[in-house]
Nucleic acid binder design. Sequence first.
DNA 1: CGGTAAGTTGAATCTAGTCAAGAAACGTGG
DNA 2: CCACGTTTCTTGACTAGATTCAACTTACCG
Lengths: 299, 299
Amino acid sequence: MTAAMSHYDALDFGTIDQGTTSAPDHEGANLSVRELTRLLHIDYPDEAWLARTAFALRRVREGEALIRAGDKFHSLYIVRSGCFKTVYTDFSGSEQVLGFPMCGDLMGADGIDGGHYSSTAVSLDTSEVVIVPLASLARLVSECPSLEALLYRVLSRELVRVQNMAWTLGTLGAEGRVAAFLLSMSARLGALGYSRCSFNLRMTRQEIGSYLGLKLETVSRALSALNTAGIIQVHQRSIDIVDAAALRGVIDPAAGAPEGIVPHPGSAAAPGGVKDGRCARKPRSQVPPGRAWRELAAA
Amino acid sequence: MTAAMSHYDALDFGTIDQGTTSAPDHEGANLSVRELTRLLHIDYPDEAWLARTAFALRRVREGEALIRAGDKFHSLYIVRSGCFKTVYTDFSGSEQVLGFPMCGDLMGADGIDGGHYSSTAVSLDTSEVVIVPLASLARLVSECPSLEALLYRVLSRELVRVQNMAWTLGTLGAEGRVAAFLLSMSARLGALGYSRCSFNLRMTRQEIGSYLGLKLETVSRALSALNTAGIIQVHQRSIDIVDAAALRGVIDPAAGAPEGIVPHPGSAAAPGGVKDGRCARKPRSQVPPGRAWRELAAA
DNA sequence: CGGTAAGTTGAATCTAGTCAAGAAACGTGG
DNA sequence: CCACGTTTCTTGACTAGATTCAACTTACCG
């Protein structure tokens, strides 16, 4: 484990004092796995083990790149606070935003296969991430195999998210995309305990547009249109959702969306729903720490 | 393992005769893991173990649905031959195509997190898939932990693929999308040993359009345009790529595309792949999990 | 041979992009 | 606290590109 440690990882994985239960907030501190599972909204069985293990944290300033496309893959990251954007940068300079990872979201998984990250992750404000170094995963998993199920699930969740994104880009017009974006933000922030109907965006119109495959002017127009329609209230980056149902109606004039594009907060999620991928996490019954896949199979 | 077996899985995981080296071709037959790794284009170290393990196969007729969105997640599938489409179906009837899994591609991974598949997989011709039942993964992995690295990588690869798709939809116009699609097909078929410049599409214009976020007429027009430009030669579903460079130029007028829009995994796996020639550990003694990540770390 | 599904092509429409100007917010330094 | 420049956002007029509607051709399958 010591071998493959990179300079800035500040890896400090290992056993920590039993007393240290709550997660510290300063740079270089550790985060317990218990906190991690809470962050990911995935229940985790091995309570005893949880208290003994921790991950390093890292603070990332606004505008700073945590991951750069092309860098050698060495760690996964989970956002603990703040907000990022992940981008492809074609070397003519222009960016394509792929996502806005927020609290509980995974970053860096695209580097597993190729051995190099394929996208860049830039912080949109002062953020904090949990570092999960590749080098320590081996040890982690050997100490608590059921951790693997967690990783599989996080990867799967990310996959579903990106698929939903492809759906949005493929089928919706400008207003629909913006509406979907707002509802998504609403649900994600709601799941984190913030207000679902009133929040502040952290990203520019340019970045939203890039994410949605639109130009910034179009985003602005769409927001204005929704505003004058009385569905939302926009003032710069502050958003108030006045009529969430109407907003969903914009996406899906004929009742079409395959259930989870727009995360319905707390919906019972009919079987088959794609689900939000963030809120409706089904509580897993206490399973003895065993093989990852056996756990998944039990569900 | 017997418990969670579904009726049609015909799961027959386990030890097979040493003599049975080559993969059988008929329904219900088994596929060795050696063949599986070959299929996935991922190198795999444990030669001894490879020969002793096998997966069930299933034949899927044209138009038949292998997976239905909403079904309970029970298995992963890897395409062995033929071609599928994966779709979201909004209950107003219209489909959105998410991908065209072909030989070596994974299907069903979107069901891991939520416990239910989120998309439907329909065969576009008579296909054959490798069934990887959830219930047997636990056992599989315990017998040869390095198999996990393989799964992580396949998931990661799929993630990158969908991200590239999002990029395509977000930034390219109609012709660019069609060009990217053709190049992607070309590369994928090439990696499978078929001709890179002359092939037959298995999907309709409608399906291509749905996949690319375009209408069928637009796809047709784009193909015609590329045809009259002398870049390709189209006749119904038969495609001949006359000038691949020009085709790339359509995507990227100003030399922009990020590394791998087209490249489908499989071919020349990026530097730093899971090589790790040694792992000749006898699988009989329970190897602690975690080897998977250690292997990835070794790259 | 006839019926159906798939593909091509044309003309009109509409959506989002482009170009351009101006307004509002933010940060910095006086 | 205010003046200033910069960035971000909004809005309008015009254009390019994709969709829509529709006719027609071609392949496919009994």
